[in-house]
Each structure stands twice: as C-alpha cells, then as structure tokens.
Design a protein around this nucleic acid. Structure first.
Lengths: 333, 333
DNA sequence: CTGAAAGCGCTTACAG
DNA sequence: CTGAAAGCGCTTACAG
C-alpha cells in the first residue's frame, strides 16, 4: 500500500509542491494559470491522490477529529446520542473517534489520553465517577471539551444538561396526584450528579406529600438481579396501588422484563413510568409512559458548542439546559 | 491550548531531541545514562507532555487508527458489533473511527475517503449495495480492509461471514416439520448478498417441502409501515397455523410491535422466529426464538485479521465463516 | 553514551 | 503566475 503524495504530482507536472498545494486547496489568493491547474487536477485524479490529513494537521494544528467518550456504545441510549453526534459532527467536517468508559475512571482517563495523543480538536464526554481530575487537567490545558448526559459537580466545564431535578419532581408530583399508596423509585446507588438530581427531585415532592414511598438503589455490577429482587420485594407487600418509577432506560428494561416474565400486568397490577426512550418499549404489552430527552438537539448543541470552542468563537462556554418531556401513555393507572 | 513537544523537553534538559525520543520510547538498543533518562522522564511529567501521535504516524506510517463503517450505529445490532470491535481493537492498541452509511453508497464512499485521508491503518466495513467500486479501489491500493456482517459478490475481500443460507434453511426446515399451514418470510427487498442468502436458504427448503409460503419483502424507506401492512394481510386470510420468520432484528422489532399492539398472541395466534438477538425481546410477552450470531467472536476475528493484514502477517486473507445458532424459545408453537 | 541531520507530507509567508 | 524554504513534531540510521 504505497500512497501517493503531493510530491509525486509535482514531479509529474513539473511544478513545485507549493503550486500543487495551492491548486489542491483552491486558494483564490495566489492564482495559478488555468493550464497548470487543470494539469495538476488531472494528475491527482489519475494517480489516485489521497491527501494526508495528518501531515496537514501537523502543520495547521487542526485535525478535524472529535473524540466521543460515552459509558457504553452498545447501550441504546448512548448509541442514539452517538449517532446524533456523528451526524452533527460530519456536517461540520469532523470525523468521530469513539470510546466506551464502562463507568470506569481508568478506562475513561485512558481514552482521554488516547484521544489527545491522537490530536483530536476536542472531545464530547460523559464523565464517570472519579473522573474529575482527568477532566480538570483537560480544562487547565484549555482543551475544547463539552459534557453530555452528565456533568461534574466540582469542575467548571461547558456542557449539555437536562432538567433532571425538575422533570423528576414532575413525575413524582404526577404520581402523587394519582393517589398511589406506594411509589417506588428505582435508581442507581451512584454518585453521578445527574442521577442524584433525579433522585432528589423525586424526594423533594414525595417527602412533602406524605405518600408512602420506597427506593430501590442498585449497584452497577448486577443491575438485573437487584432490580428483580427489589421489585419482588415490592410486590410481596400488601399495598394496593403501586407505581414504579425507573430512572433510566436500562433499569426500565430490567424491570419490565421481570414484570412480563412474572405476568404482572401493567397498569392493572402496578403502574410504570420510565426515564428515556427506547424502541424496546414497543414490544411491551402496555405503552410505557416515559421521559423523552431531546437527544438530537442536545447532540447538535454539543457539537456546536465544541466547534465554537475549537474556533474560539466561544471563549468560555456555559452549561446549556434542555427540557426533558414527560410523554403520557397507558402504563400509569 | 499550547501543547508541549519533545523539543521543550530537550531544551529544558539540555539534551538533543533524539535523546528525548529514545528515552520516551524506551528503546533498549541505544542506552542512555540513567541520570539523563530520569531527568527527561521527570521533565516530561512536570510539563505535562503528551506525545503527538500524528507526527509519529507521519514518520512511521502507522496511525494505530482503525475505521469502522456500519449501516447505522444507533441500531442495536450494529452498536453491539461496534462495541465488540472497540474492545478487540483497544486491546491491540488501536483507536476507533466510526461512521454510519445509512445504506447509502455515497455516504459509504465518503466515509472511506475520510478514513483513508485520516490515514487509518485499516478498515472494518459493512458494505452497502453499489459500493463495489469503492471497495475494489481500496483492495487495489492494498488497503487493509475486512468486511463484517456483509460481503460483496464481485469483490474478493477478506471478511467475516455467517452461514446465512444454512441457518435460514434450518429455520425453514424447522418450521416445515412443525406442520404450519402457512410460513411467512419477512425480509428486505434488497440486493445485499447476505440477505439474499437468507431468503434463498428459506426458499430452498420450502419449495421442496410443498408447504404454502409467502414472502413479505419491504423497502428501506418505510420498514414499519410495510411490515405492518404485510402482517395485516397475512392475518386476514383464513389459514390456521401460521408462522412468521423475520430475517433481521429490525424487521422483528417492527413486526412484534405490531402484533402486541393488535393483541395477536404468540404463539397461540401465530408463531414467530427472528434473526438476531436484542434485549428488546425480553419485553415481549412470549420468549422469542431467534438466531444468535456469535458477535463477539466475529468482531475479535475481524480485528485479528485486520491487524494481520496491517502487519503483513496475512498476505491474503480469506473469508472466515462463523455459525449462527438457532435458540429455541416459546414463540413457535 | 549522545547529537546532527534527514525526512515523513503537508502549508504558507515571502520573494521574484 | 510560480518556487525555494522553513517548519509542524516526531523517528532513526549514522557518526562520533
């Protein structure tokens, strides 16, 4: 695999590499005669010239590469984000490097290092627990970076967030008004701020309502098992009207799978509401009420902000908040 | 964002860049005194040195970048492949560039061009219809490339395939033996060879069996609509025992959503079998019988072959066939 | 044990 | 209208 270079073209055309570079970059400033222009273009075509973006990057200090770090690209939620970011990035001429952190700070840091060594112009990241230091370093180096889905409590960094607390409060309020005897919050036992926000939003409105409520907080190692166990316990007690609020699509998937397997009817036996959208809901016997995040807009904004930082349009980006929306279906009685 | 270079280290340490390079690369050949070695490492640490892989690539002609082109990264099936490839690639020190073709040959070609300009060491691709020319060009340039999921009929190219024809034949055979009065194949109206193989495998065993069978072949523009329409038609006629064979997970998702929405019971009213695994099946009222592809092994092999090509271990890779497996659940009566 | 130098494939002021 | 030259950040034979 021998690649042709600007040099080859120059040699064949009998001109300098500078001339070839000018022609290939269509610079209007220094005009080259039509005849040599044509000749060069033709030669480039016939010898199958592919520009070496790395060499260009080295000189221009712009790679047109963006690094994307998510928790797990095989997760529906993140792959949808990835796809939307891909679209937005491609429109602006960026190519995407992707990596999954698996909620592991070491992996996360490794990806940041890899991406910066690879000279990406910027990164879009979903930071994990204990990644503050790694992200802070990036910020200190003035590396263009924007968060998505998540944020960090102690690091000032531009990013896309949603109204986690408020929407969760809304859900709580909605369930309270429905007069459930027991409202169950299913969430993660985690320090990720955006998830804590969801929990807190829920707490706030529940505690003031006096409705009986419990929480199932699961670890990352055995999500399905703990969700099943938790729901099991809930079902065993004798309260009449119960509602489950799953605070992520992964939890919802685990929970709904358990409900269907055990022939628990929704919403007759128990009501359900879930965070995030997934095509999987369509296979469930009842249409699931869920929280929709405007993922496309969020992705577009993330890329836009990042691009702004890269080109110094925005010297100091702030957080941009999008509003998630509660979509009412029939899974709540 | 000013990045530090080997030069900075050299200047501070009072040595040449060559020496720094040797130390940083831990070359044993030319030994540097322990004292300067330590000094250099220490300086690198304190000035927060990040090696510029692009500059290295330019010199060494190896980027440690792999390009991955799939149909749509937001699709469950492809994102699982992507994740497995990511894991395998990272293990070998590669970073992943990802792009979605959307079954569009122009986009596909665009991605190939982008990736080669970005100097990826090789590509793993799921070629689309009418991409023969673009792929052939790659092959002619001796560009390391391996296909996954799909293959091309008229281009010799190493790749990972599964036994599409045989497994589809098996499914047909299985359904025939179950004595269904009508067996419905739901597939794409497409020229993608691997999908044609599935159709053909089905055809072969059905035609010889004499069982009544019909095919619903849908276009890419309106998958859900056409699947719904097709199933609707099937349900309207009076044959008793019917079975649906969805030849991809996307088709299955569309079909199952329709069945559940219309309260058609599986397998009581109609039996179902589907290609590919997806977590979504877990939300369906009946456990779905499906074809499992060994995606992890396929991804690992793809990366291994590609790595082999990149390093010239394997001068001329062939296709590697994996066997898909029919997982029996309760969706077939 | 260490350095000077060439070169990877580009871009871009500058000179003519 | 075009070219010589410097330089981006590295690596690597070669010389000493």
């Amino acid at each position: 695999m021998k690649r042709t270079s600007i040099k080859d073209i120059a040699r064949i055309a009998g001109v300098s590499v500078a001339t070839v570079s000018y022609v290939l970059n269509k610079k209007e400033g220094s005009r080259i005669s039509e005849s040599t222009k044509e000749k060069i273009l033709e030669i480039a075509e016939t010898i199958n010239y592919t520009p070496n973006k790395m060499a260009k990057s080295l000189k221009t200090n712009k790679s047109k590469l963006i690094g994307l770090i998510l928790a797990d690209i095989s997760n529906d939620f993140y792959s949808t984000i990835a796809r939307n970011i891909e679209n937005a990035a491609m429109k602006l001429g960026y190519t995407l490097l992707i990596g999954s952190s698996d909620e592991n700070p070491q992996k996360f840091k490794k990806l940041i290092d890899l991406f910066s060594e690879q000279q990406v112009d910027g990164m879009i990241i979903a930071p994990v627990v204990d990644s503050d230091e790694a992200v802070e370093k990036l910020i200190k180096e003035e590396y263009p970076v924007v968060t998505i889905d998540r944020y960090l409590k102690n690091v000032e960094i531009p990013g896309i967030v949603i109204n986690n607390t408020e929407i969760s409060e809304q859900i709580g309020q909605f369930l309270v008004e429905k007069k459930f005897d027991e409202i169950v919050y299913i969430g993660y036992d985690t320090e990720l701020p955006h998830l804590q926000d969801r929990e807190e939003g829920f707490n706030q409105c529940i505690s003031s309502s006096g409705v009986h409520s419990i929480k199932i907080l699961v670890g990352l190692e055995n999500i399905e098992g703990e969700v099943h166990q938790g729901i099991d316990k809930v079902l065993k007690n004798n309260t009449k009207n119960k509602a489950l609020y799953f605070s992520s699509n992964k939890l919802a998937l685990a929970g709904l799978a358990y409900l269907i397997k055990n022939k628990i009817n929704v919403p007759e036996d128990i009501s359900v509401i879930a965070f995030d959208e997934t095509e999987a809901y369509n296979l469930f016997q009842t249409e699931i009420s869920y929280v929709r995040q405007p993922l496309q807009k969020m992705a577009e904004e993330a890329v836009k902000i990042l691009d702004g930082q890269i080109n110094n349009y925005i010297p100091n980006g702030k957080k941009v908040t999008f509003n998630a929306e509660l979509i009412h279906k029939s899974s709540v009685k």
